[in-house]
């Protein structure tokens, strides 16, 4: 564990804790403007998509939009199964099976 890792982790603790503590600790003195609440609603989809898309289309840093890219196919399967079943665990398990099969068989 070097200084960089400790600094990263302690800073992450602060960034997480202040958000969770906001209303519980500081109570009703805090108020969010409605516009901020509405903007917050878009954060999860925006952040998660920004993480998923490069990982799926550019695994290892190389652009790869072929049916032989297990990350791309696995991601599509995960999304499709989740969309159909509304069950995240099922989607992860099915997509992991497809991903694993492609990694080891192709």
């Amino acid at each position: 564990m070097n200084d960089f890792l400790w600094a990263a982790i302690l800073g992450m603790f602060v960034a997480t804790y202040v958000v969770r503590a906001s209303f519980i600790v500081f109570g009703q003195k805090l108020r969010f403007p409605p516009a901020v609440v509405q903007a917050l609603g878009h954060v999860p989809v925006a952040v998660l998509t920004a993480i998923v898309v490069p990982e799926a289309l550019m695994p290892g840093g190389q652009f790869d939009v072929s049916p032989g890219n297990p990350y791309l196919v696995g991601t599509l399967v995960a999304g499709l199964v989740a969309w159909k079943t509304r069950n995240i665990l099922t989607a992860v398990l099915v997509s992991f099976a497809v991903f694993g099969a492609m990694r080891w068989l192709l």
């Binding site: 989809v45 998660l48 993480i51 696995g74 995960a78 999304g79 199964v81 989740a82 997509s95 992991f96």
Partner: peptide, 19 residues
């Protein structure tokens, strides 16, 4: 092993139903 795919799959599964 491709363990990093676990995160990608989970996030994709969270996003998809919201679209």
């Amino acid at each position: 092993l491709g363990l990093d795919f676990a995160m990608v799959a989970t996030f994709a599964a969270i996003i998809a139903p919201q679209l």
